[in-house]
Design a protein around this nucleic acid. Structure first.
Lengths: 113, 113
DNA sequence: TGTTCATTTCGATAATCTTAGAAATATGGA
DNA sequence: TCCATATTTCTAAGATTATCGAAATGAACA
């Protein structure tokens, strides 16, 4: 039986991506990063803005990067980080909305109120 | 300074909701539940279908319920669980899309391809 | 090549999460 | 009341995650 969902995320990928977002610290980092926009921020600047530095920041950044939520590019001595949340969040909501609900509901009908 | 986002989720709520989804086991439980649709399933039936039982299931169910992803109703001897993922996923994507990106992008412009 | 700045790896500790068995609680029925 | 069923609480072990300081690596520049 094929369990691969339509949105292209396996249950393992979905879980680890959700887990990557499941930390206030990382959500804070991502927040700074997303607000910084396409140009991104160096890891140093990011750490200063988010209140996380050194090896701890490296740790969280690895998790966010592996989840595809952040992209890194070397620029001179620094490493520039930029958020890539749009696609991921769409894939994530797609995971629950399309994959999980394929049998029981039509996505698009759900209402917020 | 007010950090409350437009989508109504605080960073703490967002993080704990993401964390609730950040487990293959819980994602599996939620999957069964969402596919079961509005009528829901008893905890026993849910556990049997998802391959999780007893205290472990109680544990995961508490997390999902506290995150607002699952709702429980007593029905005779059993407790019926039903998924409430639609609203939450919308709030969650809203969190990243609206709250995080308020300064740098207009939600709605992001494209999947 | 040597120096400096930026980031990572290493190593250790504390904290949190997961899982599960056994006992306890709650509900419905005889 | 007594019994059977359904779920939870208690308790504890094992696994994973978070955090941090110090040393190490990588890149640019004199």
């Amino acid at each position: 039986m094929d369990l691969t969902p339509a949105c292209g995320l396996s249950i393992e990928e979905a879980a680890s991506t959700f887990a990557a977002l499941g930390s206030e610290q990382r959500l804070g980092v991502l927040r700074v990063l997303v607000r910084a926009g396409p140009p991104g921020l160096s890891i140093g600047a990011l750490g200063a803005a988010a209140g996380v530095t050194g090896s701890t920041l490296t740790h969280h950044l690895r998790i966010l990067t592996q989840a595809g939520l952040v992209q890194q590019t070397r620029q001179g001595r620094s490493i520039i980080c930029a958020a890539a949340a749009f696609d991921r969040v769409q894939a994530l909501s797609g995971y629950l909305l399309t994959e999980c609900c394929a049998d029981c509901a039509t996505p698009g009908e759900h209402d917020h109120g």
